[in-house]
Design a protein around this nucleic acid. Sequence first.
DNA 1: GCCAACGTTGGC
DNA 2: GCCAACGTTGGC
Length: 153
Amino acid sequence: MKFWLMKSEPDTYSWDDLENAPAKTGSWEGVRNYQARNFMRDEFKLGDQVFFYHSSCAEPAIIGMAEVVRESYPDHTAMDPKSQYYDEKSAQKGLNPWVMVDVKAKKRFAKPLTLSEVRKSSELKDLLLLQKGQRLSIQPVQNEHAKIIMNLV
DNA sequence: GCCAACGTTGGC
DNA sequence: GCCAACGTTGGC
């Protein structure tokens, strides 16, 4: 079982949106970055644990834990001209390179672990999230880092 | 809104 | 294949 961190802008898709969805489960559509896609396609397994992170908001923070409940399958929004995630070039080629997974909200943390709090932990200084220029929306989290995070929330 | 950092695109 | 221009991410 692996740990991951997935970023979402709460204005677009928040922890509450996931928790209020049927079966507390949502499909992680709209990833249009190859590195992030490769993680989902090649490495995401049922039962993997996902730290849900709110980005681009007043207080960026890790909000809760979700779990992978369906492994990768085609992200149909890439082929849908009406979707905000439409990928015109791929659609014209008739090949959809994009995938998504389903995640289920498991546990909202008693208190969100804010980015500034993460920065304060010397044990988390190597966390990918903190590295300079790191913009990946899906990141692996080392087991040791995951333990430390879970001890902080 | 600003801007640093990064990924992608496209001309050559 | 190089690299400048452009677009996006995301913290502040």
